[in-house]
Design a protein around this nucleic acid. Structure first.
Length: 333
DNA sequence: AAACAGTGCAACCGCCTTGAG
DNA sequence: CCTCAAGGCGGTTGCACTGTT
């Protein structure tokens, strides 16, 4: 038995909306709102349309402040960045682009942006790709990560493309405004890190999550995510900690961070405080470094150029050649 | 000018989630 | 809990428009 239709298909108009229908719907909603019931709305508004169709027409076309027309470079960057992080969750992406609808973004991605980026990647010689990344060869726990549903899972790179791994430090590139020509290595890294177990099995660290909502940072570049098991409790322990971007999913704490909203920034207004999870500078919430260290590990200093995505672990014994702590992230100096 | 191919986008479909009863 | 209607969402379709031969 199939699913019951949402309306009587034989009795509703389909296809493109006429200006008269648009006017009726707009007038009705502006006067009465939707009353939380789209199904009943068309009849009340005198429209021979399915409620779902009315909803779609309103959300995608008629509601105020809808932006039509070309996407700006900044919007391109945001879309790419978010797509790289969360995949085809168009409504989440649209939420970060005022005036744009999920449908618009989806169409734009499928018809233009994807091709644009594929074109860029095609002109990069494959020898520039990092074909293998020897990250944590012995620490990557099974099962191996499955390929992401989207082909291109990251489009950005840093100005530093160093990928170095030894037993003390790891440098890699994440985040920037430039289109990426070595997507594969970055993908591998991100996927590997998801399965990197640290200290104990409860401290599973995820980096560059693709399965949870993300944010974009104030400079328009991408941000990445850390998921740190059992941290909801600690987050609460901090007290005033009210992160602007986190989700409670499967009892994990998810923290957005990235370029422009560094874990630790020298440019923070308050000394010895850290900005975490934000979309804009104004949204950034600042927390005492010492408290955050307890939460996520050692923080790094920013390089002053918004090029630092460093994240330090809570392991006193692991320091790099600079005497800094074992970290994941980018540093250019 | 006509035929055909390619493109863009509005609208639809159907699955999944949510929440009220 | 369970059920089910309604909303939300991502994937897909169909058609109008534009470009090319």
């Amino acid at each position: 038995m199939g699913r019951a239709p949402c309306c009587d298909k034989s009795n509703v108009k389909r296809g493109p909306w006429s200006p008269e229908e648009d006017a009726k719907l707009k007038q009705f909603i502006e006067k009465y709102g939707t009353a939380g019931n789209w199904i009943a709305l068309p009849q009340k508004a005198g429209l021979k349309r399915c409620g779902k169709s009315c909803r779609l027409r309103w959300l995608n076309y008629l509601r105020p402040n809808i932006k039509h027309g070309d996407f700006s470079d900044d919007e391109d960057r945001v879309i790419c960045s978010l797509y790289a992080n969360i995949g085809s969750r168009w409504s989440s992406i649209a939420a970060q682009l005022p005036g744009r609808t999920d449908n618009d973004i989806k169409n734009y991605w499928n018809t233009k942006l994807k091709k644009k980026l594929m074109g860029l990647n095609n002109i990069i010689p494959s020898s520039n790709y990092n074909q293998r990344s020897p990250f944590f060869p012995s620490q990557i726990a099974s099962p191996q990560p499955q390929p992401q549903p989207h082909m291109i899972s990251s489009f950005f790179r840093d100005t530093s493309n160093a990928v170095v791994c030894n037993n003390k430090s790891i440098n890699f590139s994440l985040g920037s405004n430039q289109y990426c020509d070595y997507l594969q290595s970055q993908d591998r890294l991100v996927n590997s890190l998801k399965y990197c177990t640290l200290k104990d099995s409860n401290n599973l660290l995820m980096f560059g999550g693709t399965d949870v909502a993300s944010c974009f940072s104030s400079d328009g570049s991408c941000s990445h995510q850390m998921r740190y098991e059992k941290e909801i409790k600690k987050e609460r322990e901090i007290g005033n900690c009210n992160f602007s971007n986190y989700e409670e999913t499967h009892q994990n704490f998810i923290l957005d961070y990235g370029i422009g909203n560094n874990i630790i920034s020298q440019h923070d207004e308050k000394p010895n405080h850290v900005c975490l999870g934000s979309n804009t500078q104004n949204d950034q919430l600042q927390y005492d470094v010492e408290q955050v260290k307890q939460l996520i590990g050692r923080g790094s200093g920013s390089d002053g150029n918004n090029n630092n995505n460093s994240l330090f672990f809570n392991d006193e014994n692991k320091t790099d050649e600079r005497g800094m702590y074992y970290y994941l992230g980018t540093h250019l100096n």
